[in-house]
Design a protein around this nucleic acid. Structure first.
Lengths: 194, 194
DNA sequence: TGATACATAGCTATGATGGCTACGGTCAAT
DNA sequence: ATTGACCGTAGCCATCATAGCTATGTATCA
């Protein structure tokens, strides 16, 4: 048996997530992470290849948590997809408010950490199912992309402070949600389910 | 009269924008910028306070250019807002495809460069006008936010490669555009203009 | 016209910080 | 004792940023 680990990878990633939230990407230095887990910076390199990999691990953990929340929010597969979609949207937004830096990290890749497409797809699966129920099988993918684009865009702009000038953000959120839902519900209508 | 400038601020910002596109934020080092304008790094600090300010200036210039394009795409204020909205969406997306790194920089703040809210609002003004024509005065702001959220979210995800797995991105874009436009057109209908 | 003063551009040199590597010491399990 | 995992010290290199110097050219005044 190897010597039991003193500082696990989970600890490192957790510390990294905390630091990311408190100080942004700039605050996420290897020294800061090391200090938080009670170790010197070079020791981290036994668990993590380099800083970019740590960032990728943080993004991955964040996506997994978001996916779990969205999945829980989606709920009963046989229920009305419209309230379920609303729960999903709120769950994602709540999550973004709790971990804004993590949310930004996940939904603003392209630069450093390659987007973890698989994990993201998994967390989107529930939305795809709801969209299928609303807009019909043939429009499920397009509707999902429209919905997720709106949702992530809205939350990103909200986090960025783009909505600070006037207006009620909550109302705008409900407005967009309602209009999108009803726009997708054409699928229900077409199939005589409405 | 002071000595005429040899390397202007515009030159520096322009070089910075080019470097941003070719090498991302990491490639945007002061030395690289200096080398590109034919100068040593310390000399840049005569024009720019520090690297963050340079990044902010780059973001500002990018927003201004985007705003000009959107404004041009919006076109005739008295025309049908629906095709105008489509032109605006395409103009923004085209711009993002031309300068992906710049687009990301502008629409992913919160971290480093504080969002230039004023410039952004200005570039959104045409959309606000179109949204007002479509959804009515009382829903103009909400509709604008829904539309811009969808648009920036869609483009961001597209740039991040989130749409690589299956499906036709072009079709998804047109789908979202059409559904949103028709969802907003309730305003037209309510006022008996449709 | 010619000399001086000054503002500005640019440089070299230097400090500080952070990522990362090399290597060595320590301790537990075998 | 040997092995292997863990962690530290020391050090390298790149980058941002600053301090202080030199040079150049314009402007002003004799």
């Amino acid at each position: 048996m190897p010597t039991p680990e003193r500082t696990s990878l989970d600890e490192i990633v957790g510390a990294g997530r905390d630091l990311l939230e408190s100080g942004g990407l700039d605050g996420l230095t290897m020294q800061a992470v090391a200090h938080r887990v009670g170790v010197r910076a070079p020791s981290l390199y036994k668990r993590v290849r380099n800083r970019n990999e740590l960032i990728a691990l943080i993004a991955h953990a964040t996506v997994r948590e978001l996916g779990a929340r969205v999945d829980a929010a989606a709920g009963d597969p046989d229920g009305d997809p419209r309230p379920a979609l609303r729960r999903v949207a709120r769950a994602a937004r709540d999550f973004a408010h709790e971990r804004p830096a993590g949310f930004r990290l996940v939904f603003t890749p392209g630069a450093e950490p390659r987007l973890d497409t698989d994990a993201l797809e998994a967390s989107i699966a529930p939305v795809l199912r709801l969209a299928s129920g609303l807009a019909g099988e043939e429009h499920a993918l397009d509707a999902t992309r429209t919905f997720t684009a709106w949702l992530t865009g809205f939350v990103s702009m909200e986090l960025a402070g783009a909505f600070r000038l006037g207006g009620d953000v909550e109302r705008a959120f409900e407005f967009g949600l309602a209009r999108l839902t009803s726009a997708f519900a054409d699928g229900l209508r077409d199939r005589g389910l409405l």
